[in-house]
Amino acid sequence: MTERPKHPNQIDVEVGQRIRLQRNVREMSQTTLADALGITFQQVQKYEKGTNRVGASRLSHIAQVLGVPVSFFFGDPQPSFSTNSADGVGPIEDLSQFLSTSEGRDLNQAFTQISSPAIKKKVVNLVKALAAVSDIEK
């Protein structure tokens, strides 16, 4: 009997991406999260990659440390794991990569400090317009 190579389950990958996303939003290192959980940063890396499955009690503890409900890690009841960007990266991975940059964190923090919904909408429209101009200049 031949063994097939083991691949991470897509749900485990998405849960891991959401762990990384929220950790980055909180500007928390893998080591800081690991210390709070009583595990190694390597274990956090494996969770974030979806290589290791996160148990229910550990996921509950992660949610508590990151300040989100456990449901945050699952999103929609019928999640879509398809990719939708040109580089084949899914929406959660795309967002996680953006928030792991200093520009992404700075933009996110500044945007959340805007209290006016009308101004927030104008900022979004401005960024969309800049993105469209950027695409034309390529």
Rank of each mutant, 00 (worst) to 15 (best):
D12G: 08
V13I: 15
E14T: 00
E14V: 09
E14R: 08
V15G: 10
V15S: 06
G16R: 07
Q17E: 15
R18D: 09
R18M: 03
R18C: 00
I19H: 11
I19P: 14
I19V: 15
Q22C: 09
Q22W: 13
Q22T: 02
Q22L: 08
R23A: 05
N24F: 13
N24R: 14
R26L: 13
E27L: 00
E27T: 08
M28V: 07
S29T: 15
S29H: 09
Q30W: 04
Q30C: 06
T31K: 07
T31Y: 05
T32K: 10
T32A: 15
L33T: 13
A34K: 03
D35C: 04
D35R: 13
D35G: 05
A36D: 06
L37M: 11
L37D: 01
G38E: 12
G38C: 04
F41V: 05
F41K: 15
Q42A: 06
Q42H: 12
Q42R: 13
Q43M: 11
Q43T: 10
Q43D: 05
V44C: 00
V44E: 10
V44Y: 00
V44I: 10
V44P: 02
Q45S: 12
Q45L: 02
K46E: 04
K46P: 04
E48T: 02
E48W: 03
K49C: 01
K49I: 05
G50H: 01
N52E: 07
R53H: 15
V54W: 06
V54D: 06
G55V: 02
G55T: 07
G55L: 00
A56P: 08
L59R: 04
L59M: 10
S60V: 09
S60Q: 11
S60E: 15
H61T: 12
H61P: 00
H61V: 00
I62D: 07
A63S: 06
A63P: 02
Q64E: 12
V65M: 02
V65F: 06
L66Y: 06
L66T: 11
L66K: 11
G67R: 05
G67H: 01
V68K: 07
P69H: 07
P69T: 05
V70K: 14
V70D: 08
S71Y: 01
F72H: 10
F73I: 10
F74M: 02
G75I: 04
P77N: 11
Q78F: 10
P79K: 03
S80F: 02
S80R: 14
F81P: 14
F81K: 13
F81S: 12
F81I: 11
F81N: 12
S82D: 15
S82M: 15
N84M: 09
N84K: 10
S85A: 07
A86P: 04
D87N: 15
D87L: 10
D87R: 09
G88K: 09
G88Q: 07
G90F: 03
G90A: 11
I92L: 07
E93F: 07
E93K: 12
E93L: 14
E93Q: 15
L95S: 03
L95P: 07
L95V: 08
